[in-house]
Computed example of a mutant assay.
Amino acid sequence: MSITFTHRRGIRPVTGLAALARRYAENLSIAPHFNAESRWYARIGGDSTHEAWLLTWLPGQATDLHDHGGSAGAFLVGGGVLTEQVVRRGATLVDTAFVEGQVRSFGRRHVHRIVNSGTAPAISLHVYAPALREMTRYRVDDGGLRVAAVETAGVDW
């Protein structure tokens, strides 16, 4: 089944991305895989307005602090528990746990880190609009957020 994202008047794109993530999850036709060396991920769809990715997380696997290069997004936890760490003032990380079935939407300037801090494997489905072109990786240094690297789609991942 082909799924397209349409921006309807009166609905913010971030809200639309959460609904789109749920639709992808309901129509998932790829089996997730787990990799002990690194997180496994696969692009599972998209069109000219968005893209969707399926990711798996073994306990302890995590991302670096990062943004999405100007893309808004949403992620749906399809199994397990994932903790999102969001940067607040003073470069403090605030943790929020998301369990199976929960969706988290975020805007274009969102900086976060996701970690499987549980004891069981986790699965998540991520949708971005527009499609990811770059991601900036950050580090916390001297109480502030500093750019560690800028990665480009098709080159770095």
Rank of each mutant, 00 (worst) to 15 (best):
T4E: 11
T15F: 02
F106E: 03
D67P: 14
A97R: 12
L17T: 02
L20F: 00
L145P: 07
W157G: 11
G46P: 02
D156K: 07
D141C: 02
G60S: 08
G73N: 10
G16D: 14
L65G: 10
L17K: 01
T49V: 11
I114L: 08
T15L: 07
P130I: 01
V77R: 00
R9N: 08
R139T: 09
A72R: 10
Q61D: 08
R133W: 14
R9M: 14
R12V: 01
I123K: 00
D142P: 00
A52L: 01
E134A: 15
Y138H: 14
R108V: 08
R133E: 13
G143I: 13
V99S: 10
T49N: 01
V111H: 11
A91R: 15
D47V: 01
F98W: 03
S105T: 12
Y128M: 04
R113Q: 01
A42L: 05
V87S: 06
V87G: 04
H33A: 07
L20N: 00
R109K: 15
A18R: 00
G90E: 07
L20V: 07
D47A: 06
F106P: 02
L55C: 02
L28P: 02
S124Q: 02
V99Q: 10
F98K: 00
T56N: 10
G118W: 12
L17I: 05
L76C: 04
